[in-house]
């Protein structure tokens, strides 16, 4: 078991990073920091997947003749998909945050909820 702790440190790091991102989402009040936490979670998952595709003493899957020793190419494709989806989700959510800021004049999630409940939304730029 102790041997596995020393060899599986990529997965351990990915899980700890995931926890940091999760705590960010739960505890940060600022909405932009919440989405930074979401991006940290994404990064942790990429690290996890890529570390699973890795095989020691093998090269990147650019195939040359006479060499059949390559790392697993499947997780690389998965990570590519993940990066694209994460970029589009981040852009969309940041656009929503910008609209929210224009409407309520604050980035704090609690303040937004408070203003929503008391019904005093600032009219901002909407004419």
């Amino acid at each position: 078991m102790i041997k596995l702790i020393t060899t599986n440190y990529f997965e351990m790091t990915a899980i700890i990073l995931f926890g940091i991102g999760f705590m960010n989402i739960l505890l940060q009040d600022n909405l932009i920091k919440k989405f930074i936490g979401l991006n940290i979670m994404d990064t942790a998952i990429y690290l996890y997947l890529v570390s699973y595709g890795y095989i020691s003493n093998r090269t990147a899957p650019i195939i040359r003749e006479g060499n059949w020793q390559y790392v697993n190419p499947v997780p690389s494709g998965l990570v590519l998909t993940g990066i694209v989806v994460s970029v589009s989700m981040t852009a969309f959510s940041l656009a929503l945050v910008q609209r929210l800021y224009k409407r309520y004049g604050t980035l704090s999630f609690d303040e937004v909820i408070k203003k929503l409940r008391s019904g005093e939304a600032q009219n901002g730029s909407e004419s």
């Binding site: 078991m1 596995l4 702790i5 060899t7 599986n8 440190y9 990529f10 997965e11 351990m12 899980i15 700890i16 995931f18 926890g19 999760f22 570390s51 890795y54 095989i55 020691s56 093998r58």
Partner: peptide
């Protein structure tokens, strides 16, 4: 949550083994 996941990561197969 992280504790459970870390325990699972210890039980996973070895990193980089073919």
């Amino acid at each position: 949550y992280i504790g459970i996941l870390l325990y699972t990561a210890v039980l996973l197969p070895e990193h980089g083994n073919e």
